[in-house]
Design a protein around this nucleic acid. Structure first.
Lengths: 134, 134
DNA sequence: CGGGATCCATAACCCGCTTATGCATAAGCT
DNA sequence: AGCTTATGCATAAGCGGGTTATGGATCCCG
């Protein structure tokens, strides 16, 4: 199980390198897939606290990847929206990440590769289920 | 590949919960397996900067999990050693972590479980190789 | 209209990580 | 011995990710 620790740190590290952290990338990806969202909604979806999301959005905004707009229907609300640059950067980052992971996987034997292809999505699904239940 | 992001964040989160971060747990584990080590050596082994390791050790020391001792053979050196408490906490943490992962895995189908058992160690090995080559 | 609920921002804090410095000891060369 | 260089560690400053506690707006509803 020590293996997991190393894996996590490796992925995190290689993710940070590209200029977009895992948290930022994840949030940006969601905005890309699902369109503009309320800040609180985003925080809940990404499973982080609201203040944390406020900070993350502030950083992303400073970097020009995201935009805050007022919610016409609710004076309190803030809609967060990915900019074109943001989406572009996200796509690029995702490609880089996929490439890094592919390089890693290529060093494995054929059956091991097969196992990874099965295991990762399965684990991701389990995480998803686990979270929605708690 | 978005799956990986979620997985990483999930593991990191559940790891932090137990009071021992991944970095701390990893370092403590190494000290347990390999005995007292030089601070710089530890930093290299854990693949982080020396100042980072200094800080990490300071925190672990404050928590009573680790001890700094002078290196008799080198006046500059500092040996870092896990305390009994440290080892105990580490073992406990590892058990908890294993349990959490097991719970996750139990929700998968039999072949998926098999795939995870193959994939994780393989990936960890690939990370190891990758790192030692660069 | 008034009071509770909701949305967001701010403040203050910890951990993980970095680079840039500085200080002390070690080692090597003359 | 003495001077220089290399090594080992600590400190400082700064960023990102994360938290709880708090406060100000706005909404909604009785």
């Amino acid at each position: 199980m020590i293996a997991v620790e190393q894996l996590v740190r490796y992925v995190r590290h290689s993710a940070t390198a590209g200029g977009l952290s895992t948290a930022a990338s994840s949030a940006l990806g969601r905005l890309g897939r699902e369109g503009p969202q309320r800040l609180t909604e985003l925080a809940r979806a990404e499973n982080v606290s609201q203040p944390n999301m406020t900070q993350l959005v502030t950083r992303l905004e400073r970097a020009g990847l995201v935009r805050r707009t007022a919610d016409r229907t609710d004076g309190r609300g803030v809609l967060v929206e990915a900019t074109d640059t943001g989406l572009e950067v996200f796509r690029q980052r995702r490609a880089e990440r996929a490439h890094a992971l592919q390089q890693l996987v290529e060093e494995l034997s054929e059956p091991e590769q097969q196992a990874v292809m099965t295991a990762l999505p399965a684990l991701a699904r389990a995480v998803q289920d686990h979270r929605s239940r708690s």
